[in-house]
Design a protein around this nucleic acid. Structure first.
Lengths: 194, 194
DNA sequence: GACTATACGGAATCCAGATTCCGTTTGTCA
DNA sequence: TGACAAACGGAATCTGGATTCCGTATAGTC
């Protein structure tokens, strides 16, 4: 029995109400995590989901596990963005779009912002797979841009988390505003060759 | 009686051992705050200072008050840096030095990094005076650079906290490393005109 | 040296949240 | 429909820290 079959069976075994509740908890957590970041309270998630606190814990062993799950899900959005950006013809546009769209994806999600900024307690362990899925297309985009002379020759994939982290911190520092667009603007200018 | 005379008298009234202990607590707090950030524990500060926890609270009403005092003190360093940078002849060098030295000042001080990044609980209220003292020379530096065409014409003082916040987040994200220098490098490139 | 206002130490208290536990309810299946 | 395993709710418990309190110690003053 492969792991996935095993998982499938576990899911099949889940009682109907249990599956529904798990979904509700997850949805509530997503919403509140986006609003309040890691400061969300388990009680609040429970009541927002319309279930008891015990039910939350039955589905997610700890708060950390729940939040990591949020981060993992959100992170996948980056990969979608990278894959889409890769289709853009112009090498520079591809890079610019990658960073811009990624920023937009983070906007308005306090929890993900915190994760991007490396706030403790938000685990980045266990999402290596997601990271790799993002890194592949991102790397191709950058390599192409470097070869085309559209960005400084020393740009690398590793610059992306670094820069995103910076832009995110602007969002976090000045929430609700558009200052981060200026930050992004500056960063993009800094990436140009020469 | 002016406020300053009043304060002076209060200080004069402080018993010798009290003054000494206050100093010790402050010093311990500075050290541990730099190491652990806002996560420092009051008990730890007390024992590190060689006093009882009660003594810490006699001198600083709450943890927040103590940390704010730390931030205020640290912030003053920025003003010194700005005043020094203002003396630099070359307009671009002045800007570059301002940002570089400010970054260096933050390096290795986790507490101040958190404050720069706007982590909650670290109060920025009550240090308006320090902010203004920094803004004045910084503004002159930037104005001069803009007029000389050494930086993009739309650069403003408000860009400084934004960019510093970003660079700081890199330090925080990759502590101990020198990645932030690359981030600074990119940011400086982005500030250049055109 | 005695007296008193100040300070001190640190055990006890408070508090906010996460996590556990168990009596009750509900879905599933024969 | 009855039986029972699977889930549920939420009160009770646990925890890590901040903050308070009060009996004791000491600097300053005569």
């Amino acid at each position: 029995m492969t792991p996935s079959e095993q998982k499938e069976q576990t899911e099949r075994t889940l009682r109907a109400d249990a599956r529904r509740n798990r979904e509700r908890v997850f949805e509530a957590a997503r919403e509140l995590f986006a609003r309040d970041g890691e400061g969300v309270q388990m009680e609040e998630i429970a009541s927002h989901a319309g279930v008891g606190i015990g039910t939350v814990y039955r589905h997610f062993p700890t708060k950390g596990a729940l939040l990591t799950e949020m981060v993992r899900t959100r992170f996948q959005r980056f990969t979608e963005i990278a894959l889409a950006a890769e289709q853009i013809e112009d090498p520079w546009e591809a890079v610019a779009t990658l960073l811009t769209e990624s920023s937009v994806a983070v906007e308005g999600d306090a929890g993900f912002q915190m994760a991007m900024m490396g706030v403790e307690d938000l685990e980045w362990e266990g999402i290596e797979q997601e990271k790799a899925a993002f890194a592949a297309p991102a790397e191709r985009i950058i390599e192409r841009a470097v070869e085309a002379g559209a960005v400084r020759s020393d740009m690398s994939v590793d610059d992306i988390p670094m820069l995103m982290c910076g832009i995110t911190s602007t969002m976090y520092f000045a929430p609700g505003g558009a200052e981060w667009r200026r930050h992004l603007d500056l960063v993009l200018a800094g990436l140009r060759p020469g």
